[in-house]
Simulated assay, not measured.
Amino acid sequence: MTERRLRLLKWLSLLGTLATLGVILIGAWTRLVDAGLGCPDWPGCYGRLVVPDGATAAAHTPEAPLEAFKAWVEMVHRYVASALGLLVLTLVGLGWRWRRRADYPWRLSLALLGLILVQGSFGAFTVTLKLWPQVVTLHLLGGIGVLLLFLWLHLRLRELAAASRPPSRRRLSPLWGLAAALLVGQLALGGWVSSNYAGIACQGFPTCNGQWWPATDWSEGFHLTQTVGPNYLHGQLHADARTAIHFGHRLGALALGLGLLLLTWREWRRPGLRPYLVGLLGAYAGQFVLGVANVLWWLPLGLALAHTAGALALVLTLALGAWRASRVGISRQASHEEVAHA
């Protein structure tokens, strides 16, 4: 394996990680400005690869009048996502010759390619199924999955470039799995809140609509087989169903916070992990404050976008902490410290 090509792959994977962050945030902005259906077709916009003029759009889809700003927002999102797909293809192509090497993360590269193709399909379904909440939520989770695979690929390539043989690894505590499961659940709840437009269904904090346990319709709020066909822009659910979704997201945030505190308490004895644990709690605290601010100030665009960015920071911090915790050096360091204090 040539050092030059390996270095290129390492930097391309880092670029992919940063670009995926941008794609997710642009996607969130697209949704927040109601531009998800700015182009009623896919992959083009009113049959064109660039946003057409009003007359062309009217001739193509007369029932969906052109709103140029929203159409351009949607198309910029598609352009950037397409560029990300090309970057993944480049990584796979450059790594092809080392696909049989045991120390090269070839399967990880293929997983990334597979997921980016699935994401492209979800992008199409988001438009053709008119913002069906199930697809929108899965599209968000898929984007976060792409981010994590890019990050993991970069870490593996950086490790490969720095050592002649892969370092030994240690089994993670089950608490890392619990924290990851709680975070995935909370991200799914956040996506469900967003896709059903339930962000301000609970007014006020810490109470919801003036009550500690508000009127809710859980069965309708979490009815995962909503009808395909209606336009889900601005949502279709009634107030109590949206309240259930929002309130569920608050309960999920509480569970996640407890899980992260438990993880921090259990792993604090490992000095090499402490910066990651502090960062994890800091990211959670920031998300908590942003969530409360969004409720109290009725979901302003900047704060809503910052809340998405905060969720990504939480994901990255947990992933980096888990990566660091899996390295044997931490375990040895902790063992020596425990012997010294004995």
Rank of each mutant, 00 (worst) to 15 (best):
P166A: 06
H154M: 07
A180Q: 13
I144F: 13
L148N: 03
A188S: 13
L157H: 11
S168Q: 15
A162G: 05
R169M: 05
R165L: 01
A161H: 13
L182H: 05
S164N: 15
G142L: 08
A161T: 12
L138K: 00
S173V: 04
L178F: 14
R169N: 06
S168N: 13
Q186H: 04
A179I: 13
R169A: 07
A181T: 06
L183R: 02
A188M: 13
L187V: 12
R165M: 03
F150P: 12
A162Q: 10
L189Q: 01
G177P: 15
P166W: 00
L148G: 01
A181F: 15
G191F: 10
S164V: 11
E159N: 11
V146Y: 01
L182A: 05
P174S: 02
L140E: 00
A188G: 12
H139V: 07
L183Y: 03
V184G: 03
V184H: 03
G145C: 03
Q186D: 06
L172N: 09
H139R: 02
L151S: 14
A180L: 15
R170M: 06
L151F: 04
G190W: 06
L178Q: 06
H154L: 13
E159F: 04
L140M: 05
R156N: 10
W176A: 03
R171P: 03
A163W: 15
A181S: 14
S173D: 15
L157T: 10
G191T: 03
L141Y: 05
L138D: 00
V146A: 12
R156S: 13
G185N: 06
R156G: 09
P166L: 09
R156H: 13
L148K: 00
R158H: 11
G143T: 09
G142N: 00
P166S: 11
L141P: 12
R169C: 03
L187K: 07
S173T: 14
L147D: 07
I144R: 09
H139M: 10
A181P: 06
L147F: 05
L160C: 03
A181Q: 03
P167A: 12
H154I: 06
L138I: 08
G190T: 01
